[in-house]
Structure formats: C-alpha cells, structure tokens
C-alpha cells in the first residue's frame, strides 16, 4: 500500500513539474523568439516563423541587426531618457503619495474620507480620456527654467514626469500599509513631543520598507514599460524621447524586423536587470497587492 502511495506521489509530482515547465515555456517563448530573431536577417527571420527554427539560434546568425539599430536610432539616449524619467517620477511619487497617505491615515481633518474616495475613484478612469485636456493644460503651464519663466511644457522632461507623480494606486498602497502600523507607535511619538513631520520622517517612513519597495517596483515598471501615448503627444524633439516612442524609428516604409527585435532586446535589458536584482521584493510586491503584471 505504501509503495502504491509513493508511486502516486511521484507521478503527481512529475505531472505538476510538466505543467509548470509548459507554462514557463509559454511565457518564455516570446522572449526567446525576440532574442533569437534579433540575431537573424529579416528574410530568414520571416521564413523561420513557420517552424520551430523561430526559437533556435540557427542559420545566418550575427550582431548586424544591433549595429543597424544603433545606427538608425540614438538608443543610448532613449534608454537614458526613460531611466531618468522613471527614476525622478518614482522618487517624487513615493514622497508625495506617502505624504498624502500619511495625511489621510493619521491627520483627522474634515472630509479626508471623501477626498480619498475621489482619489481612488480616479483609478477607473483610463488615461486616454484625460490625455487631450491634459495636453491643453500642459501646453500653457508656466515653468521656471534656466532662461526664466517659460510657458508651455511641451518637449521637456518635466512634462513626462509631473503628471505621473500623483498616483491613486500608490496612495492606496501607502494608506493600506499605514493603517496596519500599530497606532501606539504614532501616539508614543506624539507623546514624546514629535511633530507630524517628525513622525513621518523618523517613525513612519523608516518602517515603510515593504510598501516603498512594492510601490517603487510597480511604478517603475509602469513608467519604463508603458509610457507611449503621452510622450508621443507631448514630445516631438528627439532629445527627450523615451524608449517606447523610439520604437517608431523602426516602423518606416519597409519594417526591418531584425532591427526591431534588436532594439526591443536592448531596451529589455534594464528591466531584466531590475527584475533580477529585486526578484524577491518583486514577487512579494505582486503578492501583497494582488496586482497582475
């Protein structure tokens, strides 16, 4: 009887691993296809798509697509722009949204529940619906730059940063986390003479490592991977373009698919590195928010 049970257990384990491997392969195929295709000439790439060769580095393999991609578009600049915009937005967003959440959670001001509800309600509004009003707004807003006050934010970094700093999801994550912090810690700090700012800086934020990691990861991925429509509208000059808009350089009259794959491979590297470094925190953040990637 025991042997039969052991056999069943082994079989179940084998089936489970088989299913896991298949699922992993399904998720890996696009990535493998991208990397392998980036090494092939466009003609071979297209002919290979009808067979399993599409996923194998066989045939005429070279780094020519990469060289061509770098000749066609200033990839380094685009990657820098995206990383810069992402970093500044994430830092500002963590600061501003945590401050807002602190106020909603701890400061007992009249109507804070209603204001929080309104902020959270913005989660259901797709960006596309506010893109045009926002464009009209930012094209007239003043900005104090190196040459004094200027009007209109188009073709700048800050037009790609400022509208994304306030973020309902980030506020929500912080509010949820702050609510779970023991209230006595805040009260103890108050009794010890701390001001609200000191409580935020010395007590609450040092204890907020987990939510900072979660919010930073989700925001970074959003900023790096999904910024396409807005920069396409507000940035016309090459100097401020992020990576996703740079993809347009490769969709000219004749699409060079090999170069597209090379470009995509290059811009994926920072995200992969980011993921590998923060793998544990990344999984924890997805698990803690229930947000799908």
């Amino acid at each position: 009887m025991a042997i039969v049970t052991q056999d069943n257990h082994g079989l179940r384990l084998a089936v489970r691993y088989l299913v896991l491997i298949l699922v992993a392969l399904v998720f890996m195929f696009p990535l493998v296809f991208m990397l392998v295709s980036s090494l092939k000439p466009t003609a071979q790439l297209l002919s290979d798509t009808s067979s399993l060769r599409a996923f194998l580095p066989v045939g005429d393999i070279s780094l020519e697509n990469y060289a061509a991609a770098f000749r066609r578009a200033p990839i380094g600049l685009f990657v820098f722009n995206s990383i810069f915009i992402t970093l500044v937005t994430v830092c500002a967003s963590l600061f501003l949204c945590s401050l807002a959440a602190f106020s909603f959670t701890y400061l007992n001001w009249k109507g804070n529940g209603i204001v929080l509800s309104v902020i959270l309600a913005t989660l259901i509004i797709p960006f596309e619906t506010i893109a045009i009003p926002l464009l009209l707004w930012v094209s007239r807003l003043p900005w104090v730059g190196m040459e004094g006050i200027e009007f209109g934010w188009l073709n700048t970094y800050h037009v790609q940063i400022v509208p994304w700093i306030a973020d309902a999801l980030t506020v929500f994550l912080f509010v949820q986390f702050f609510k779970d912090l023991p209230r006595e810690l805040i009260e103890a700090a108050r009794a010890e003479g701390a001001s609200w700012w000191q409580i935020y800086r010395r007590v609450v934020m040092p204890l907020s490592g987990p939510v900072l990691a979660t919010a930073a990861i989700l925001k970074s991925l959003k900023m790096y991977n999904e910024q396409y429509l807005w920069p396409l509208i507000v940035v016309q000059d090459e100097a401020h373009r992020p990576i996703m808009v740079g993809l347009g350089y490769f969709f000219q009259l004749n699409v060079a698919w090999g170069e597209v794959m090379a470009y995509l491979s290059v811009i994926t590297i920072p995200v992969l590195a980011f993921y590998l470094v923060l793998q544990r925190a990344f999984i924890a953040s997805i698990a803690s928010t229930g947000v799908k990637g």
């Binding site: 023991p182 810690l185 010890e192 003479g193 204890l207």
Partner: peptide, 19 residues
Amino acid sequence: QPKDRGIAMVFQTYAIFPH
C-alpha cells in the same frame, strides 16, 4: 498638544520603535 503637556506615556503594547 500632547508634546506641550509635560507628560510621558507608557503603552500596553510597549510602542517602542522597532527600527
């Protein structure tokens, strides 16, 4: 404000700062 009352408080849950 609590900070200006000249009081100090000890809580049931200790409320000491873990960091």
